[in-house]
Design a protein around this nucleic acid. Structure first.
Lengths: 144, 144
DNA sequence: AATTATTATATGTATATACACTGTGCATAT
DNA sequence: ATATGCACAGTGTATATACATATAATAATT
């Protein structure tokens, strides 16, 4: 009993995929202390050097309000520090830096795992689809 | 400033895609009173006729505990009814049935929209990828 | 300098998701 | 019949996400 129904809904399939793959990455990243979500926040903060919430949120493609709460998490774990002063700027802490260093090879392994599972073609499709869809919201705003 | 970074992370791209597409479907479904998540719950309940939480959760591919809370939502909106008695069984209410009837053509429009946006090839990839990944967890359990 | 405008940050509310654990009730085994 | 076990339901805690709205802080304008 309880066989999972194979949906033809693009949305349902994307949600399921995102959840399954998140779990896969989280499990692969175990030991680094980071989840994929946190990994992506930190790797981008490293790229930026330092950033305020708005800038950081734009870079990773999240709502500012979502960002406020996500930052709360990485900050509570001590991965980022708040350069108090004008404007509230965040930078990676030492703990954040070393977590990230530990996480990178694990992330690469997870990436390979996906290529193994989906094949090179479909893995590439994932990136292409992501890039296509990430402009959806921007376009909506432009139309207004 | 604040250009969105194009990620090469399969996980990040899938998450972004899932969120963007969920928003697209939710907006397309407006007027039916349903979100995509709710739509998928209800369309499956209709297929099943009636179901207890465990069975329903297995069908839609969600954790039982997730299901408990998601059911709480559709129940609070009056879309499903609880056939109290032995085992706690759920069925669609009249309101749920008519919401679903209104939603189906809207869902189909959203489906077409995705094919338009991604092209037939990549749209098919979404389904294929979803079906491949939905067995991940099952396999993990089998390995134990 | 005081008021207004702009930008940045935060909160309220709603939804979605899962793991670990708790509770509960029925079935089976001794 | 009491105990043990299994199936099912629910809670605690943690994460993730966004829209609408509020608040704070800074800049501009008169």
């Amino acid at each position: 009993m309880g066989e999972l129904y194979k949906s033809k809904c693009y949305c349902t399939n994307l949600r399921r995929s995102a959840n399954a793959v998140s779990a896969l990455y989280d499990s692969e990243l175990e030991g680094s202390g980071l989840t994929v979500g946190q990994y992506y926040l930190l790797i981008n903060l490293r790229r930026l050097g330092s950033a305020n919430i708005t800038h950081w949120a734009d870079t990773v493609g999240l709502e500012r309000s979502t960002m406020v709460r996500n930052i709360r998490v990485v900050e509570s774990h001590g991965f980022v520090e708040q350069t108090e002063g004008r404007g509230k700027t965040y930078t990676l802490s030492d703990k954040g830096n070393s977590a990230l260093d530990k996480a990178i090879p694990k992330w690469e392994k997870a990436q390979s795992r996906i290529v193994e599972l989906l094949g090179r073609e479909d893995a590439e499709a994932v990136i292409r689809i992501g890039w296509t869809l990430q402009n959806l919201k921007a376009e909506d705003e432009t139309v207004l």
